[in-house]
Amino acid sequence: MDNAQRTPTPQDLDTLSRQLGRPVRDVVEIGARCVCGNPLVATTAPRLGSGIPFPTTFYLTHPVITAAVSRLEAAGVMTEMTERLSRDSGLAEAYRRAHEAYLQARNEVGARAGIGEVPEIAGVSAGGMPGRVKCLHVLVGHSLAAGPGVNPLGDEALERIAEWWTPDRCYCEGVWDVQGQAPSRDLSRHTRTQGLGEAELAAKRAARQGGHEADPAREEDSK
């Protein structure tokens, strides 16, 4: 997409909030659009306005695609893909390159947004890259934003959801509420961490993980 297509309009932000069921924040670009023009992927700043690092640059927002990818996850596709990475050196190398492409894209997004590098998540991409698969939504969002040939497992997941969603037609009608006001209250867990110091954030992450060491990539599911 060109710069004009990437630039989010007020209508885009309204649509994203309706798609997600909560107000969006820190969206700097639209990563991919439906054939009708509605957003499919939100490109998010690598550091949120609250100061929290956010590694998930390309966030899948369209409810139809999100539900289709969730079906794959429920069917055990992530485990299958991770096992293949350990056996297929060619696939593993392509996935490693996807990881590097994600990091480069995030740096470029940060630069365009005037944020710059975020050292807390340096070297950490998203979705489990480069060694495993832990969130297909991230990989699909990356594939839609980057185009085919960049993320092999994201591309594969897109092929595997063709029964429910394909890029050549619109699936937007009736999928989200278009009447009344867009959601104005954010009930996601990020709102409960705004304004906390690093020690407090680390303690909250540890509590969520049952006492295990905090992993900044776990923030990817809390957009």
Score class of each variant (00 low, 15 high):
T9A: 02
C34G: 06
I115Q: 10
V133W: 02
G149K: 04
T61K: 02
C36F: 03
P53M: 11
T57W: 01
L85M: 08
A182R: 08
V133H: 03
Y171W: 09
Q181M: 11
E173K: 14
D155L: 00
E73S: 04
G123V: 08
G128M: 03
I30G: 01
E108I: 06
T7I: 12
T9P: 00
T56P: 02
A92I: 06
R87E: 14
E219S: 09
R25V: 06
L153A: 09
D88V: 07
W165A: 04
E213Q: 15
S143Q: 07
V178N: 15
P53L: 13
A68Q: 00
G147M: 02
A199W: 06
R84S: 13
F58M: 09
I30T: 00
E93W: 12
K204A: 15
R205V: 11
D215N: 12
A122S: 15
I161V: 12
L85D: 06
M81L: 12
E173W: 12
A145P: 04
G147F: 00
L20S: 00
H190Y: 11
G116C: 11
Y95V: 15
T56Q: 10
Y102W: 13
G116T: 08
R160T: 10
D26R: 03
L196H: 09
P23G: 11
A4P: 05
C34T: 07
F58R: 03
A202L: 15
V138Y: 02
T7V: 12
N107D: 14
V109N: 01
D177G: 15
A92V: 07
A105K: 02
T166W: 01
Q194P: 05
Y59K: 03
R97Q: 12
E220P: 05
R106Q: 10
T61A: 07
G154A: 02
G149Y: 04
D88N: 10
A111D: 13
D168A: 03
S50N: 08
A206C: 13
S125N: 07
V178S: 15
E29S: 05
G49H: 09
G51H: 10
E173V: 13
A67S: 15
A42C: 08
N3T: 15
T15Y: 00
M78N: 08
S70H: 08
E108W: 05
G110M: 04
Q19Y: 02
R169C: 06
V150Y: 06
P148E: 10
R71F: 02
V133E: 02
T166F: 02
S17E: 04
A199P: 05
E73H: 01
L48S: 10
R205E: 14
V24E: 05
D2N: 13
A199V: 12
I161R: 01
A207K: 14
L139M: 07
Y59C: 03
C34L: 07
P23F: 04
A162N: 07
